[in-house]
Design a protein around this nucleic acid. Structure first.
Lengths: 152, 152
DNA sequence: CAGTATCCCTCAAGATACTG
DNA sequence: CAGTATCTTGAGGGATACTG
């Protein structure tokens, strides 16, 4: 894990972010948390993940400050996992994945779940990087400015 | 890999997207491609990844339609890997990861690379999910509408 | 119900050597 | 230079049994 180990301290925020949440389960747990899920069993049922793996992922997400453990809101003897601000801030990433998936990963007559704006009841618009004046930003009109010393 | 295998056919686009690009290396390769890298050796040097792993990831990305192989633009005997439209469309995801990383993964005096709008020379604004009327959308005011038959 | 503890298997990952 | 081929290690992942 030589190369992967460097990610944690990379000068590129994309690399550091992927070190933290660059696996499928973590972001699916976060997705479920957006959907209101907070209990171990809820994640277990929803994801079909093995218990020990879920346990490890939850711990890792708590250590990363993406989830936090809190006393149960209902009468349960057990706690629950809640999103922190840091976890909430992953929302654009999950929305980006969702919209990319919607566009490219489904057949013509294949149905998929939809993210709905509760105020309007309608699917949310496509999210695109844009300049302050509204110009769409793409890989073609943007550029990574590297650090004085280092790499991308 | 029972659960992971279901992701490919999940009704949730987030799950399908993560099945395709839910690992660190794939998105880092895409990031490098945005940065203009196209050759095997360029990715190899940039990522510090093992050759066999890079080889496998490139093949997987080509099979997924995210990259495509093309004749070299310079005189090289070897081909190069270029982003497809589908690969370009991952830009919002990478930007989302970048901006989350910038905000949460660096210490106060720690420097990181920046994504610059070439037209203005300035860092690009934070990308946020928004309704058609501009209202910010968050997990709190959105909701996943499930399929008639199925799960989230 | 929410985990922990085991066992087992596969694949990711790295290192290195080799080939067109 | 761009891969392929091996080999080894370790982590990811699943199934199941167990415990407070």
């Amino acid at each position: 894990m030589a190369a992967r180990e460097q990610l944690k301290h990379a000068p590129c925020p994309v690399a550091r972010a992927l070190d933290a949440v660059g696996d499928a389960w973590s972001l699916l747990i976060v997705r479920d948390a957006y959907d209101g899920k907070r209990r171990f069993g809820e994640f277990l049922d929803s994801l079909g993940i093995a218990r020990n793996i879920l346990s490890g992922r939850l711990r890792k997400l708590v250590e990363a400050g993406i989830l936090e453990e809190a006393a149960a809101s209902d009468g349960s003897a057990y706690g629950e996992y809640r999103l922190t601000r840091k976890g909430m801030d992953l929302f654009p990433v999950v929305v980006g994945l969702r919209q990319w998936g919607e566009k490219h990963l489904y057949g013509r007559q294949e149905r998929h779940s939809l993210l709905i704006d509760e105020a309007s009841g309608k699917p949310i618009p496509r999210m695109r990087p844009a300049a302050a004046d509204g110009r769409p930003l793409t890989p073609a009109n943007t550029r990574v400015r590297k650090l004085p010393d280092g790499r991308a």
